[in-house]
Write a protein that binds this DNA or RNA. Structure first.
Lengths: 213, 213
DNA sequence: GTACTAATCACCCTTAAGAGTGATTTCTCT
DNA sequence: AGAGAAATCACTCTTAAGGGTGATTAGTAC
């Protein structure tokens, strides 16, 4: 079987080295290139067409989340695994939202990396958001997942539906007899809870999840 | 039967007089109040709770379209007929979009007014957008309905779907390999053709009309 | 060959949106 | 009584959105 072609993107040279050391232990993987920022990630992906991109998040010029989004838009078949350190798992949802299929912590044993990436390359890891939770449980380091995934309050649902109808914040404030500030505040919390980033995505979400009648 | 309670809103005194003269010919109608701008329209609607509001469009302080929107949001059961002069029928769609149920031209015969308003009050005039067209045909004064209601081009549909997915104009431009200017241009045309005013309403429209799969 | 349209790009301008931060009040749960 | 959540409002700041206007190119229709 052909080895899996892997592109490493991380702005820290020693981080790339660490990953390289791990992957070179196994014949299943071949590192086809290395990049140091999101911009390079896009260019190298286009040039090298790797099977998997290992993408760091915090990088200069263009960060890994933006690069992930761009790459998935242009090359949907390229798989992206976001790599991060153990203490900022909060980015997990953002990464999946941008189109990443996988999520790995830099400070795991090399055997874990191997098992995970191999399964991943063979499509044996359908990395959905549900499974992401399970993975999190297996690494019980206290993460800073705050008040995410709390259910929406009644008021928030009300605001959500008005947003999805196409009303502006001002219109909503007029209808609910509250200030526009408050509407913005509710909307901010709604977007945060649902891991969305703007009212259009919220509208799309509302329709796809049967919240509009 | 109780006469229908009517509120007249128009900034021109002589326009209100003209309407008053017409309506006072008939016992079916009683004029419960008169306003001169959109702000007054809202206040008077709340105070008087008329059956029908006859609403002019071009007015100072707050125009009739905005007032129509506000009133329909707060008092959905109040019927609104937008009144206008014959040469700016282009506002028709906007008025219906804001929630107006009817549309009357100021310079019609009083009998036409009577027949229309009576039928309207009795819910015998389901003033949909389709019927609006028919009414337009009956008043064949050459109106300035431009290139409205043209079908969307393939490219426009493509942009529409990306918008409804929640992508920003910049994201769309990157994916379609065109400039952000062009995306904006397409979007502008799309909104114009569909008589919508922002990307959220477009998203809503897309889902409700089965344009998303 | 000319008229029409789709698609592209550009510039200006105003307002809406959204992030960040923080504060107050009321209610509930324990 | 005290903790926590929900709802409210406020201020700042940056960027996205959208309207208005206009121009070019290429393809199509008649």
């Amino acid at each position: 079987m052909q080895p899996f072609r892997i592109l490493i993107v991380d702005d820290h040279a020693h981080a790339r080295e660490g990953i390289r050391d791990i992957l070179e232990e196994y014949e299943d993987f071949i590192i086809v290139g290395e990049g140091t920022n999101g911009q390079e990630a896009i260019e190298l992906t286009e040039k090298l067409m790797p099977d998997i991109v290992l993408m760091d998040i915090g990088m200069p010029v263009m960060d890994g989340l933006e690069a992930t989004k761009q790459i998935k838009l242009q090359f949907p078949y390229v798989k992206i695994v976001v790599i991060t350190v153990s203490d900022d798992i909060t980015d997990l949802f953002d990464a999946l939202k941008k189109g990443a299929q996988g999520y790995l912590l830099k400070n795991l044993q090399s055997e874990v990396w191997y098992d995970y990436l191999r399964a991943f390359a063979l499509d044996e890891v359908p990395m959905s958001k549900e499974i992401a939770f399970q993975i999190l449980k297996e690494f019980p380091q206290e993460t800073s997942i705050k008040k995410l995934d709390t259910p929406l309050s009644a008021r928030e649902l009300e605001v959500l539906q008005l947003v999805a109808k196409g009303l502006s914040n001002r219109d909503i404030s007029a209808q609910l007899f509250i200030s526009e500030h408050t509407v913005k505040s509710h909307l901010k919390n709604i977007l945060s809870k649902l891991h969305l980033e703007n009212r259009v995505q919220l509208t799309s979400y509302a329709f796809q999840n049967g919240l509009m009648n």
